[in-house]
Amino acid sequence: MNFFNKDDVLNAFHYRASTRSYDGDKKIPAEDFQYILELGRLSPSSVGSEPWRFLVLQNADLREKLKPYCWGIPTMETASHIVAILAKKNARYDSAYFDTVIARRGLTGEAKEKALAVYQKFQEQDIAILDSERSLFDWASKQTYIALANMMTGAALIGVDSCPIEGFDYKEVNRILVEADLFDPAEWGVSVMCTFGYRNKDIRPKSRQDLADIVQFVE
């Protein structure tokens, strides 16, 4: 297997910046965008739950409806691709959804029961997320951000720009997408969105804390 040179990866991280102005005439090739989506699919998640779905919003009318409820209004028009990442609302250890998680691992019988017991303890006691529907949804949403980061980083490695978006009216965006019959609101909710495309102007170099200020080695 061939691996990336460290300098190439670091250069991609320095190059990647939140892009708020795209070249509306330049589209990401289908093969490249499939690669970006595959990075999301292959991302890790807590207990292998994969509590996500990726809505690629290419419909112009739908984008127009979303614009009034999103901060980055111009990018809704010019981004090559817009992805709304959904998070599972009821990914409990004892749900039908978790049955699919277990099935993907090929676990049956006693092995399945042992795995479910581990997941039950994890959700009830270790991370304690079963107190409310919101805490369970927030846990699932945390997993989507792993996929989001991998998609943006992988995009930068091939010269594709991106911008993560939390600046939108969640209630209205969910409403619009549900009315478009894109998901069941009892099962899914919008966690985060992201635009992808090609910048049409220079972006100011990013500002970050010094490594020494944020890292502590405990030996």
Rank of each mutant, 00 (worst) to 15 (best):
F4S: 05
N5F: 00
N5Q: 04
N5T: 00
K6R: 11
D8K: 11
D8Q: 14
V9G: 01
V9R: 00
L10V: 13
Y15M: 05
R16A: 07
S18K: 01
Y22H: 08
G24W: 09
I28C: 06
D32R: 05
Q34F: 04
Q34C: 05
E38P: 07
E38M: 02
L39D: 03
G40Y: 02
R41D: 02
S43A: 15
P51G: 12
W52E: 02
R53N: 12
F54K: 04
F54M: 03
V56Q: 08
Q58V: 03
L62G: 12
R63I: 03
L66T: 12
P68I: 10
P68M: 09
P74L: 07
T78H: 07
S80M: 02
H81W: 05
I82G: 09
I82V: 13
I82H: 12
V83I: 13
V83H: 06
A84W: 11
A84F: 15
A84V: 10
L86W: 02
A87Q: 05
A87H: 11
N90R: 13
A91Y: 07
R92G: 09
R92W: 06
Y93L: 06
Y93G: 01
D94V: 08
A96V: 14
Y97H: 10
F98W: 15
D99W: 02
T100M: 12
A103W: 05
R104Q: 14
R104M: 14
R105E: 14
R105P: 01
R105S: 13
T108G: 09
G109H: 11
E110R: 04
K112S: 15
K112A: 15
K112P: 02
E113N: 10
K114Q: 15
A117Q: 12
A117E: 13
Y119N: 08
Y119V: 03
Q120G: 01
F122D: 07
Q125D: 15
Q125W: 05
D126I: 13
I127A: 05
A128R: 14
I129A: 04
I129D: 08
I129H: 03
L130S: 10
S132V: 07
R134D: 15
R134I: 01
W139S: 09
W139M: 11
A140I: 04
A140D: 06
K142S: 12
Y145T: 06
L148K: 08
A149K: 06
M151S: 10
A155D: 12
A155N: 08
L157C: 14
L157R: 08
L157S: 14
G159P: 11
V160T: 09
V160S: 11
V160M: 07
V160F: 13
S162E: 07
E166D: 13
G167Q: 06
F168S: 10
D169F: 08
E172Y: 03
V173W: 00
V173S: 07
V173K: 13
V173N: 05
N174D: 02
E179A: 14
E179K: 14
A180V: 00
L182C: 04
F183W: 03
D184R: 14
P185R: 04
E187I: 05
E187H: 10
W188E: 05
W188G: 12
V190S: 06
M193F: 04
G197Y: 07
G197V: 02
R204N: 07
P205D: 10
K206S: 13
D210A: 15
L211P: 00
L211H: 02
A212R: 14
D213N: 14
D213C: 03
I214R: 10
V215Y: 15
